[in-house]
């Protein structure tokens, strides 16, 4: 079997004003071919104005098994949300 062709993650900006968003992956030997493959695979119907490709191996991810302790600090701090505070109706929208 021949060598495996590297994997790239593809991010597309659908239009100005929006962020690049992950849309999928492609296999390509280098970044030039990855951009071309991403264009052919993910933008056949005007889905975007800009493409980023990132080597999949370059992504560092949080550990899904540790998501409890990782995200617990955010969940327990309800005072970070506006609804935590009582403001009388007569004050109006705030």
């Amino acid at each position: 079997m021949s060598a495996e062709t590297p994997l790239w993650e593809v991010f597309i900006r659908p239009r100005n004003g929006l962020s690049h968003r992950h849309v999928g992956s492609v296999h390509a030997a280098d970044e030039v071919l990855a951009i071309q493959a991403a264009r052919d695979v993910y933008t056949r119907r005007g889905e975007g104005l800009s493409i980023w490709v990132v080597p999949s191996a370059a992504i560092t991810a949080s550990d899904p098994d540790a998501k409890g302790e990782m995200f617990e600090p955010a969940e327990s701090k309800i005072y970070r949300h506006p609804t935590f505070y009582d403001i009388p109706d007569e004050v109006g929208h705030m």
């Binding site: 994997l7 993650e9 992950h22 849309v23 999928g24 992956s25 990132v54 080597p55 999949s56 191996a57 370059a58 992504i59 991810a61 550990d63 899904p64």
Partner: peptide
């Protein structure tokens, strides 16, 4: 459809 760089922790 998914960042496969994150895979391998199977």
């Amino acid at each position: 459809m998914y960042s496969q760089g994150l895979i391998g922790a199977h």
